[in-house]
Simulated scan of single mutants.
Amino acid sequence: MTTSASVRAYRPGDRAALDDICVRTAHNGQDSRPVYADPGILPAIFAAPYVHLEPELAFVLDDGHGRAVGYIIGAADTPAFAAAFRTEWLPLVADRYPAPTRPPVTPDEVMLGLLHDPERMVVPEVAAYPAHLHIDLLPEWQGRGHGRALMRTLLRALRDRGVPAIHLCMATANVKARAFYDRMGFHEIDVPDAGPVAYLGRTTADADLL
C-alpha cells in the first residue's frame, strides 16, 4: 500500500477528502466526530480556507489511486491570510456557522469563536516566522515517512518563494504530534499565556535536509 503513495499538488477534487481527513484527526490527533455535534466546523476553520485562499501551498498524500489520505496546507504570510480569511472566507461560511452570541459552553461553540476570530492567528511573538501550516494524515498512513515528505514539499515551496521561516500552533495534549515536529526540526517559541497550545517554528532554508 505504501509503495505507490506519493505527494502531489492539491486539486479541487480533493476538497471532500481533505475535509474528511481534518474531521478524523482534529481532536488532538484523534477522530473529532464523538466530540462535536457538527464536526464540519473543523475543516471550515483549519482546512478549507487554506485551499480556497492559497491552493498553491496545498499538497496531498495520494494513495496511488487518486485518493488523498493526508495533506499539508500553509499560508505564506499569516497577517495577510488572517485578513483574507475575514474578508473572503468568512462570508462564505457565516450563514452555516454564525458568530457566537454568548461565551462558549460546548466544544462547537469554542470552534465558532475561533472561526469568527481569524485575527487570533496574528501572534507578535511569531512574527519572525511569517508562514504557518497544518498537516494531517489518516492514522493508517502515519509513521511511514509520509509526513516528512509532505513537510519537505511545503518547506521547499515556501523557501522558493522567499519565505524564511514557518510556525505552527498545536494542542499540547497531542504529544504524538509534538514528537513528530521535534523530529522535523521545529523548536518551541515562547508565547506568554498561550494556554493549552504551543507555538513551534523553524527555518525553511534547510528543507532539503528533511
Results as ranks from 00 to 15, higher is better:
1 M>T: 08
1 M>D: 04
3 T>A: 05
4 S>A: 14
5 A>F: 13
7 V>A: 09
11 R>G: 08
12 P>G: 03
14 D>L: 05
17 A>M: 14
18 L>K: 14
18 L>W: 02
21 I>K: 06
24 R>H: 15
28 N>M: 14
29 G>E: 10
31 D>N: 01
33 R>H: 04
39 P>Y: 12
40 G>L: 05
43 P>F: 02
43 P>R: 01
44 A>T: 10
44 A>S: 12
45 I>Y: 12
46 F>S: 00
49 P>N: 00
49 P>Y: 01
50 Y>Q: 01
52 H>C: 11
55 P>Y: 05
55 P>M: 02
56 E>I: 02
57 L>M: 14
58 A>F: 04
60 V>P: 02
60 V>M: 03
61 L>K: 08
61 L>N: 01
62 D>G: 09
62 D>I: 10
65 H>G: 12
66 G>W: 00
68 A>W: 03
70 G>Y: 02
70 G>I: 03
71 Y>R: 08
74 G>A: 09
74 G>K: 04
75 A>L: 13
77 D>C: 11
77 D>T: 14
78 T>S: 08
79 P>G: 04
80 A>E: 14
81 F>P: 01
84 A>M: 06
85 F>I: 06
86 R>L: 12
87 T>D: 09
91 P>C: 15
92 L>W: 00
92 L>R: 10
92 L>I: 09
94 A>F: 14
94 A>L: 13
95 D>V: 08
100 P>H: 07
103 P>I: 14
104 P>D: 07
106 T>G: 05
107 P>L: 11
107 P>W: 13
107 P>F: 07
108 D>K: 12
111 M>A: 14
112 L>W: 02
113 G>S: 15
115 L>Q: 07
116 H>M: 08
119 E>F: 07
120 R>A: 06
122 V>G: 04
124 P>W: 08
126 V>I: 00
126 V>P: 00
128 A>C: 08
128 A>K: 11
130 P>W: 01
132 H>D: 15
135 I>V: 12
136 D>H: 06
138 L>V: 05
140 E>W: 09
142 Q>H: 07
142 Q>G: 06
144 R>G: 03
147 G>W: 05
148 R>S: 15
149 A>S: 12
152 R>T: 01
154 L>R: 03
154 L>E: 04
154 L>P: 06
155 L>Y: 08
155 L>W: 06
158 L>T: 10
162 G>V: 02
166 I>A: 02
168 L>S: 06
169 C>K: 02
170 M>D: 07
170 M>L: 15
171 A>W: 11
173 A>S: 12
178 R>Q: 13
178 R>V: 14
179 A>Y: 01
180 F>A: 05
181 Y>V: 09
182 D>K: 04
182 D>I: 03
184 M>H: 15
184 M>A: 11
184 M>G: 02
185 G>R: 07
187 H>K: 11
187 H>Y: 15
189 I>F: 06
190 D>Q: 10
191 V>F: 00
194 A>H: 09
194 A>E: 11
197 V>E: 04
201 G>T: 01
202 R>S: 05
203 T>D: 09
204 T>N: 12
204 T>M: 05
205 A>G: 10
207 A>E: 11
208 D>N: 13
209 L>R: 15
